[in-house]
Design a protein around this nucleic acid. Structure first.
Lengths: 195, 195
DNA sequence: CATTTGAATATTGTAACATTAATCAAATAT
DNA sequence: ATATTTGATTAATGTTACAATATTCAAATG
């Protein structure tokens, strides 16, 4: 047997050596989960998404509508506008009820960017999406194109789907056989907070 | 030591016994993957949604754009926005909660006309009004002018209040001593229904 | 013939492990 | 002096292992 002595004698114990926390792919803690094989591709693709286009974040609809009775005046209010304190003219409105049909199939997406500005959907708005609804031509939809999420108007061009941004600055997106195209749901409403 | 004999003598080796493949949650093979913690909630939600919704296809009659839902990911969570990333508890967004601060002082008005179109408030929208809030210059307010109600941006001109429409077609409304002017509240949000 | 029961086996969440990657400062080279 | 090389060190990551659970079957029982 031959004992090989190291040519080099470098390195050694060093204080504070080693990889730093947060130096990983995600820069944060990770967890192990088990997922169905058919979803693996989508999930990995999602994890690899570098940018999100005009989607900021997402959340689910509240399950039980907290019926929060409030007054609604709907009209052109001529002279003699009724006081909101007058309870005989009031209509009650639950925003959840008004804006959400199927809460199980509904979720929210916060909008980033100005690509839907002509449809009065602005940066910071939250749009309401129904996943169970059939998308028709002309509907505003949430879709993913080659891994990027976007909210656009669904249209048709030469027998293929096409996505139209509601802002002249942007071009329509054509879908061909080489385009990964997935429809996530139909935008049924939008809310905005001023204050 | 005491030897306990089983009262029962059932069961035993049986051919073909045991759980069947495909009897699991997803009905298919699963795999284990590691994902960043902030994505956990959305991935789980995605897995839930795709399980309970067997949506098949986009309604465009044209073939192979199969509905293959993808995961949305959430990056930043502003204050007050519930985080779907919470491990077990699936938090949901309550629109009433999100848009209304003081329900006692809040009421709704349905918008007619296009005078606020530049503020992305359109005909048919419902705006949310807080009566208890102190109106500041720049706020969108509900006011009555000589008995007519209107929604405009509050501004100031020569020490007097002035109401600005958010549409170039319309002129600012000046308030003088002969004008009946009353502030009814501050517009804190708006909702719109597409479908 | 219906019900009870324990064996059998897939499922599923999590822990453990091995491999890879990143980081540091001493040792060496220039 | 300054730059480069190097191995120790430690986090990150993908995979396997494992324990607990859920499901299914048919023999034993009533």
């Amino acid at each position: 047997m031959k004992i090989v002595k190291n040519k080099n004698n470098r390195g050694g114990v060093r204080l504070g050596a080693g990889r730093k926390t947060g130096s990983g792919l995600y820069g944060e803690e990770t967890k192990v989960i088990r997922v169905p094989r058919s979803s693996l591709g989508n999930i990995k693709k999602y994890l690899n998404l570098s940018r999100m286009n005009n989607i900021d974040e997402i959340s689910l609809a509240y399950k039980e509508t907290t019926y929060n009775p409030l007054v609604l005046f709907e009209h052109k209010v001529p002279a003699g506008f009724p006081s909101p304190a007058d309870d005989h003219v009031e209509k009650r409105l639950d925003l959840n009820e008004y804006l959400i049909k199927k809460s199980d199939a509904t979720f929210f997406v916060k909008i980033k960017g100005d690509s839907m500005i002509d449809a009065s959907i602005n940066d910071g708005d939250i749009v309401i999406i129904d996943r169970s609804m059939q998308a028709k031509i002309g509907d505003i939809v949430l879709a993913s194109i080659d891994g990027n999420f976007t909210i656009k108007t669904l249209s048709k061009y030469k027998l293929r789907p096409r996505l139209l941004p509601a802002n002249e600055k942007y071009k329509p997106i054509e879908i061909d056989d080489n385009t990964q195209f997935e429809l996530w749901g139909v935008v049924t409403g939008a809310v905005r907070k001023f204050k």
